[in-house]
Write a protein that binds this DNA or RNA. Structure first.
Length: 589
RNA sequence: GCUGGUGUAGCUCAAUAGGUAGAGCAGCUGAUUUGUAAUCAGCAGGUCGCGGGUUCGAGUCCCAUCACCAGCUCCA
């Protein structure tokens, strides 16, 4: 980013932060009893949290926005002042702002305590700010939602108002249009419109029904993944979808993951209690345990297209991105310490190859997810072990030369992770691919191998996905391509359109030929005008439409229309077939 | 799980202040045999998410519940 752009970005942050004060001032004017939380600038604008007895309605937002416009018009001077801790607390006491008092008490002893004042409004704030409220001309309130104080569900839920603000009206308008455009790509809307998936209230929340077209895309991805894993020496397993609680007690899931598991039976009453599997690891470990292992057997790479069940809280489900049942390209690699680096690198290589193949490689970021040393009960293993394995992982990551951020408290309960993150159309980030180093579960399960010196040792286990879970990946692909998938992924690759019913036999002939060559083809021989059929195929986002009439019938050709470029003229059936087969084979994006 | 919003035909949406549901598209039937983004006509389609309640009367008001959406928390 150029220096100038950075400055602009910074200016915008300051402006947005000031705009959040204007919002808070407006709220205090209209609802004096409301208590102030915090109001920072964010990527897309800003928010402010308020403690209020009666949540804000959409009508309230309109009133607040009108009041904000007044404050902007009043063009109040924004002034900074500092107070010693005692006086700062007294001021907030006097203004009856309990959350601000808590914030002051949280500040370190040597902190400078600053306030910003505009007209009658005063807020505890580090700043900086613009100098007059008149600068915040281009803003818009977007939504009101609940948000926990200090982000903890143990605390009271405050009311958050989200808004956006730009340097000028043009930028604001542009952003709002962009928001609307993004909504059109939303997989949850588009995926249903394109008949890729649906949901049923009789089946339940977080349990999407993948329709034939969506299934075809997933199948294409799955075949690709399984073939590639086979090439890379993976061993395929088919393990059960459920197990007795005994298994999860060994793995630790029973103690660290129970609230996310679907458990069948009552521990008090039943002799055996079963649970649907939330992860595949303990199952694939049984495969390792099926024979005595030598150092020569390692690495052992197990792969499985694995369906998992996780009992997510009801409010957490989202389209295909967050569901209760999903299928994932799951894999576990047992390896010796000296193999760890190469195996890890191969996992990253595999994931990147997959992402590149579907065109998502430039949309992801990397996160090194570590444990939280202040929250040890969430994890198994000792501090020394965690430090050691995290240090080793860091070395590997640095050698890979990828640009990653570090995140405390994001590790799995059994080990640190490299998470490949992606943002959806609403800007919300999720994990697409994860590669984890597990230094503990092998020992728990007694997964030994005999080393060259005759000693029994435990291998490292890498838990990894190669393309993430298929539901989520499909969702992101829908959004990436706005439903217009590359030909190799498209559920329908060609649609053959007849001009009139005398051409129907020829259409069927072409259909059969394409099917034999595994080109996904549909035909439209309805008694409709060609323009109508084209419009429909175009809205279904089919990559190629073939128009056939008398001319084509006589010469054994087809008239090709591409979704992207329109009419491409005529060519022979074989010529077209070779072209599209090549496009599919090379996975052209 | 929490906060707020939404729920009328397959889809998109109407229904004045509570008086018994309407349109476009899709579907079906018929006519039209069509040359690159919508041919015309007719027909059919709804226990207004589900369950209670208030009322002479509820799509409209109240309660509960389910699902969907945005956000928080949580996560692949």
């Amino acid at each position: 980013m150029a220096n100038e752009d950075k400055m602009k970005e910074l200016d915008l942050q300051v402006l947005r932060h000031s705009c959040s004060h204007v919002l808070a001032q407006a709220v205090k004017r209209l609802y004096p009893n409301v208590k102030l939380g915090i109001g920072p600038a964010i990527d897309t604008g800003f928010y402010y949290d308020f403690d209020t007895e009666t949540p804000f309605t959409p009508e309230d937002l309109e009133k607040i926005e009108a009041e904000m416009k007044k404050i902007v018009k009043e063009n109040l001077k924004i002034e900074r002042f500092e107070l010693p801790r005692g006086e700062a607390l007294a001021l907030m006491q006097e203004r009856d702002e309990p959350y601000k008092i808590e914030l002051i008490n949280d500040l370190p002893d040597d902190a400078v305590i600053s306030f910003y004042k505009q007209g009658e409004f005063v807020d505890l704030c580090a700043g900086p700010h613009v100098n007059y409220t008149g600068k915040a001309k281009a803003f818009k309130l977007l939504s009101a939602t609940g948000a926990y104080w200090k982000g903890s569900e143990k605390n009271k839920m405050l009311q958050r108002i989200y808004a956006t603000c730009f340097a000028n009206k043009t930028d604001l308008e542009e952003y709002l249009v962009q928001l609307e455009e993004a909504k059109k790509r939303d997989h949850n809307k588009l995926g249903r419109e394109l008949e890729l998936f649906t949901t049923s209230e009789y089946i339940g929340q977080g349990l999407p029904i993948i329709l034939p077209k969506g299934s075809r895309i997933i199948q294409t991805l799955q075949r690709f993944v399984e073939d590639e894993e086979e090439k890379r020496g993976y061993l395929l397993t088919k393990t059960p979808l459920m197990a007795k609680s005994d298994l999860y007690k060994i793995s630790g899931h029973w103690y660290h993951y129970k609230e996310n598991m679907f458990i069948m039976g009552d521990e008090e009453k039943d002799k055996e209690v079963f649970a649907l599997r939330p992860m595949t690891c303990p199952f694939q470990f049984q495969s390792y345990l099926a024979a005595a292992r030598s150092y020569r057997d390692l690495p052992l790479r197990y792969g499985e297209t694995s369906t998992l069940f996780r009992n997510e809280a009801s409010g957490e489900m989202h389209g295909l991105i967050r569901v209760r049942q999903f299928t994932i390209s799951e894999g576990h690699i047992a390896c010796r310490p000296d193999q760890l680096e190469d195996e890890f690198k191969d996992c990253v290589d595999l994931a990147l190859y997959m992402l590149k193949s579907v065109g998502l490689d430039s949309d992801v970021t990397y996160r090194f997810s570590k444990w939280d040393p202040n929250n040890k009960e969430k994890y198994i293993g000792s501090e020394e072990e965690w430090d050691k394995v995290q240090a080793r992982m860091k070395v590997i990551l640095d050698k890979l030369g990828i640009d990653y951020t570090e995140a405390d408290g994001e590790a799995a309960f059994y080990g640190p992770k490299l998470d490949i993150q992606i943002k959806n159309v609403h800007g919300k980030e999720d994990t697409l691919v994860t590669i984890q180093i597990d230094f503990q579960l092998a020992e728990r399960f007694g997964m030994e191998y005999t080393d060259s010196d005759g000693a029994k040792k435990y291998p490292y286990v890498i838990h990894r996905t190669s393309i993430g879970c298929y539901e989520r990946t499909l969702a992101l692909l829908i959004e990436k391509y706005a439903g217009a998938f590359p030909t190799w992924l498209a559920p329908v690759q060609v649609k053959v359109l007849s001009l009139s019913d005398r051409h129907n036999d020829y259409v069927s002939e072409i259909q059969n030929k394409f099917r034999e060559n595994r080109i996904r083809v549909e035909i439209d021989t309805r008694n409709e005008k060609i323009g109508y059929k084209i419009r429909e195929a175009q809205l279904e986002k089919v990559p190629y439409m073939l128009v056939v009439g008398d001319k084509e019938l006589e010469t054994g050709s087809v008239s090709v229309r591409s979704r992207k470029d329109g009419d491409k003229g005529s060519m022979s059936v074989d010529e077209f077939m070779n072209m599209i087969l090549d496009e599919i084979k090379t996975r052209k994006l």
